[in-house]
Simulated assay, not measured.
Amino acid sequence: MTTFADSMKKEIARVARKELRDELTDLRKTSITQRADIAALKKQVKGLQVQLGQVQRHKATAPRTADDMDTAPATVRTKGKPGRKVVFTPERLKTQRARLALTQEQMAQLLGVSSLSIWKWESGGAKPRASRVPQILARLALGRREALSLLATSEA
């Protein structure tokens, strides 16, 4: 009886191996193609990193144009002093708003944002988008009469 049971186990194992052989072959082929694809992608990423490094080095050595200086994300050049830059800070916004004698709502209308944004910027809870900073700094540099005339034209 044990001979029959052993024979039966061996035959079941043989049939199972035979059935799995085709599936394992397909899996191996898939694995080989995926590894080749991964290697190609790694080469591509390495090439792109080299190109990025070259562009960054070229940009660092290239002379800055007036357009580059005007679009600086966090600073704006002042009119009177060519080497000096103005940076956005919550304290600057607060003091400029007080100098112009504007409420947060009026300042928000002047800058084209919500009054909640002004409150968050002044409290330091948030920062304006880098693309908006030059416009904000330009508006903060206005005088009281100019700011009020801008507010009046925007309300009308």
Rank of each mutant, 00 (worst) to 15 (best):
E146F: 04
P82Q: 08
S115Y: 02
V133A: 05
E155F: 05
E155Y: 06
A130N: 04
L100H: 00
A152K: 13
K42Q: 14
K85E: 12
I118N: 00
L150S: 08
S149L: 14
F4R: 10
A13M: 05
G124S: 04
H58C: 07
V86H: 03
L100W: 00
P90Y: 04
E19Q: 08
A98C: 01
E19C: 03
R57V: 06
E23H: 13
M69I: 13
R84D: 11
S31L: 12
T78D: 09
R64W: 05
P134I: 03
K59L: 15
S114R: 06
L102Q: 02
A138F: 01
R77H: 06
P82S: 11
W119E: 06
S115K: 13
W121R: 00
V45K: 05
M69D: 15
M107S: 02
A126M: 10
G53D: 05
G47H: 03
F88S: 04
Q56C: 05
L100M: 01
A108R: 01
L111K: 01
V15A: 10
A147D: 02
V87A: 07
T103Y: 07
L150R: 07
P134K: 03
K29P: 00
D26Q: 12
T61M: 09
R97S: 00
K10M: 10
Q56V: 08
E91W: 05
S115M: 08
E105L: 12
S123T: 13
K43N: 14
D22V: 13
R139N: 07
